[in-house]
Design a protein around this nucleic acid. Structure first.
Lengths: 248, 248
DNA sequence: TTCGATTTGTTCGTATGTATT
DNA sequence: TAATACATACGAACAAATCGA
């Protein structure tokens, strides 16, 4: 039978899943923000009225999803999009020789536009909604490698301006996290190949219509909610996309 | 202190890791082959002289790596490259509309060649070793979508002939598994973009030098041992490469 | 169809080790 | 040093799924 944590809300399924979802709710609500320490296993066990083992199982899953980070002797923290983490987690371009470089973005444009029907549908928001559109030329080891077009609903980033965007430290995901409490925990990408548009080709130092890698990305936060669209046009002369697959 | 499972082999580290490695050894040696039932948790606990909880922890890791599969009420099995599993696990092309199709391969050529230095190095075998080279034209929903070139050390697949290869059921990984006891458990891929070679373009029904996705894959078995190289030239007119990333 | 044996899944509890503050 | 927190290990009990008698 159900032993719902919240009276009156029947729940069928393992207790640890209920606990996990309850903790996720605390993350969504902002009870625990990125980088913060969440209560100890013992405290959570008392709070939810379950054993430490069950808490541990729930935390294990969130740790496996890179939502939480455990440190022995210190506690359990909400994962942060630091350079280290995000860079190797959501950034998949490596040199043909296997080298990893830190991307440096030059801002090309920052605008607020009306989203296309397609974009709004992908973001699961009303059509005609306003989107912030950012374009970057990104360099690796000084070499221009790709062009990024980022789309994010303006409603998700209230008060964001070009100045704020330009003065960010680290990645844009860290900005979402620190300023708007939006935690990107998963991305889904589709890769194809196509000719480089003339304007992009020029910036990338390749000839127009040269083959480039085209990456369409959707970024998600908790509960599979999409929060950002991104398209990248990548010159794969010196860098390739790396995909290391063990799990689904 | 160490409580080595094998007398005289000191081991420092968690017990469950030792148990996990011990079970992996059984998989490598062929004690348990693909699809087979391994001993129950209780039996393994007795055999290794540890608690069921420790066995469970070790199995959890192997299950997370898709090496083992657990079925409640039945037991724990060695994972098999069935169509279902491999198809959605190691095959990443989906339709632009999100559809999934079963690939059908037409054999273009089957040869035994001397490996290039680069290929032999990637496969961690002696230079000049003999490799089986297979080329396929692969169709999805009847449409030619990509060309595959597969390289595998001949020593790994003794007795393999074109006839045997051509008459295989399901994927080549299932063939490696059933006939040669080679279990591919991980792949690493690098994606770039380039012009379609004339010969490939013709088969794919696109013009020469049209942009195609070029995928270089290395397949690994236990202990990170490389067993196969594969290059694919993909026409991304109707299909794209899908990468869903949550974990590293 | 029913029942019992087997196996994994879940939950709880306890003890001890290790890292951090 | 002492307190705290996570990591490992063991054990027990019951639930749920499976299979064969």
């Amino acid at each position: 039978m159900s032993t719902a944590l919240i009276a009156g809300t029947p729940y069928s399924g393992p207790l640890y899943e209920e606990v996990r979802d309850e903790i996720t709710r605390g993350l969504v609500s902002g009870e625990w923000k990125h980088g913060e320490l969440i209560p100890s296993e013992s405290d959570l066990a008392k709070r939810f009225g379950v054993s430490k083992g069950t808490i541990r199982r729930a935390l294990d899953e969130l740790v496996a999803e890179n939502i939480l980070v455990r440190r022995q002797g210190r506690g359990t923290f909400v994962a942060t999009h630091t350079r280290d983490r995000t860079h190797y987690h959501f950034f998949h371009l490596i040199g043909r020789d296997g080298s990893k470089e830190v991307p440096v973005a030059d801002l090309l444009s920052y605008r607020v536009i009306r989203g296309t029907d397609e974009a709004c549908d992908s973001l699961d928001i009303d059509r005609q909604s306003k989107l912030v559109s950012v374009r970057n030329l990104v360099k690796l080891a000084g070499e221009p490698v790709f062009i990024d077009e980022i789309l994010i609903p303006q409603a998700f980033v209230p008060g964001l301006t070009e100045a704020i965007y330009a003065s960010r430290e680290s990645t844009i995901y860290a900005l979402y996290q620190s300023r708007f409490n939006i935690n990107v925990i998963r991305i889904s990408e589709r890769l194809g190949s196509g000719p480089a548009p003339a304007e992009h080709a020029k910036l990338l130092g390749i000839r127009a219509n040269a083959p480039v890698l085209i990456i369409d990305r959707v970024a998600f936060t908790y509960h599979e909610k999409p929060v950002e669209l991104r398209t990248s046009w990548v010159s794969t002369k010196s860098y390739v996309y790396h995909s290391d697959l063990r799990k689904v």
